[in-house]
Every structure is written in C-alpha cells, then in structure tokens.
Amino acid sequence: MASDGVVVEIGKVTGSVGTTVEIPVYFRGVPSKGIANCDFVFRYDPNVLEIIGIDPGDIIVDPNPTKSFDTAIYPDRKIIVFLFAEDSGTGAYAITKDGVFAKIRATVKSSAPGYITFDEVGGFADNDLVEQKVSFIDGGVNVGNATPTKGATPTNTATPTK
C-alpha cells in the first residue's frame, strides 16, 4: 500500500443473489490541510450489481451534504461517478479525517463476483488547492465463495486525467 498520499479503498462485503448490500468507500491518509475537492470514477458490471443509491459517509460534515457531495450512476456506461467540492468557501466542510467517504447500496443480481474497480481520477486537492497523490484499492461483493480481489494492489495516480 502507498505510504504517502490519500488511499481510496472500496470495501469488500459478502452478499447473495437478491440481497441488498452496503459497500463502503474509505479514505485513508487524509492530509493535515484536509480535502477540499476530489472527483473520480469507479467501474462495475450492472449485470452483477444493480447500484440503487449512494449515501455520504461520516467524513462528509456539510450539514447539507447534497451541496458538497454528488454522485451519478450510469449503468449503460458501467460507471459510478463521485464528486466532492467543499461548499462553505472557508474550508469548514472539508474532509479532515480518515473514514467512510461514501456507502454504495447495491442489489446482487448474479452469482458472479461483484467487482467495483477504479477507472479514472480527475483530481484530489487540499484546502490550499494543492494537488494530492492518490491511490485506489478495488473491492466489491463476495457472492458465495467468490472473492472480488482483482486489482487489490493500489493504483498510483500522480496526475489528473480527463
């Protein structure tokens, strides 16, 4: 695992066909100046998982989280898009600690492993708008004895992609 920078880890949970599971997305290594904004994309298989919603985690402190935390689910493109932009203008609602960034709610549709993997990152910046190093650890849903650990090695991303 990367020793510096922010680590975004997609949790690994267990479920069975027809059940709804909650998959946490963790941030670790949050910089001392916090995270003022970030955007990134995960990939998944809508034939295996139906993403039914995404909720902000406990490290989102904006009293009205829909102003700073936004997501979009595109089953036709097989992606989930995340956007966080601190909304106070003063840094008061920045992410300042490690913990759960988001909770992905999904219904298991198939007995195949439900991988959720890193696809791309736009950027991560602290309260001074300084770009942060970030790496990703894939996860998803274990169905029966299947284990979604494909790509469990962190993917280092030093520069934003478009």
Rank of each mutant, 00 (worst) to 15 (best):
Lys67Val: 09
Gly34Asp: 15
Glu22Cys: 09
Asn47His: 07
Gly144Gln: 08
Ile116Val: 07
Val48Leu: 07
Thr20Asn: 07
Pro56Lys: 08
Thr14Pro: 09
Thr107Ile: 06
Thr90Trp: 14
Ile35Ala: 08
Gly34Leu: 06
Thr147His: 08
Asn64Phe: 05
Gly99Glu: 12
Ile23Glu: 14
Ile54Asn: 05
Asp62Phe: 15
Asn64Ser: 08
Asp62Thr: 15
Val121Ala: 15
Gly15Phe: 05
Gly15Lys: 13
Gly53Tyr: 03
Gly139Leu: 02
Thr157Tyr: 12
Val100Gly: 05
Gln132Phe: 03
Glu120Gln: 03
Ala85Thr: 07
Asn47Phe: 11
Val17Ser: 08
Ile52Gly: 06
Thr96Gln: 03
Phe118Arg: 04
Leu129Asn: 02
Gly99Cys: 06
Gly34Pro: 02
Phe101Trp: 15
Asp70Thr: 12
Asn145Glu: 10
Pro63Asp: 14
Asn37Thr: 00
Gly57Glu: 12
Thr147Pro: 12
Pro56Met: 02
Phe69Val: 04
Ile137Asp: 13
Thr149Asp: 09
Ile116Pro: 01
Ala125Ile: 00
Thr14Tyr: 05
Asp58Trp: 11
Val17Gln: 09
Ile116Arg: 01
Thr117Ser: 10
Lys103Ala: 06
Thr117Leu: 09
Asp76Glu: 03
Val130Leu: 07
Thr71Glu: 01
Ile95His: 03
Val81Thr: 00
Phe27Pro: 08
Gly18Ala: 10
Thr153Asp: 12
Arg77Ser: 04
Ala106Gln: 05
Glu131Tyr: 01
Thr149Leu: 13
Thr161Met: 10
Ser68Cys: 14
Leu49Trp: 02
Phe27Glu: 06
Leu129Tyr: 15
Cys38Ile: 00
Phe124Thr: 00
Val41Cys: 02
Glu86Asn: 00
Ile54Ala: 03
Asn142Ala: 12
Gly123Ile: 00
Ala158Ile: 10
Ile54Val: 04
Thr90Gln: 12
Gly89Val: 07
Phe27Arg: 00
Ile104Asp: 01
Ser110Cys: 07
Thr90Gly: 15
Thr155Ser: 12
Val141Leu: 13
Gly122Glu: 00
Asp39Gly: 00
Phe82Asn: 03
Gly18Val: 09
Glu86Asp: 01
Thr149Val: 11
Pro160Tyr: 09
Arg28Ser: 12
Asp45Lys: 13
Phe84Glu: 06
Gly144Leu: 12
Gly99Thr: 10
Ile51Pro: 04
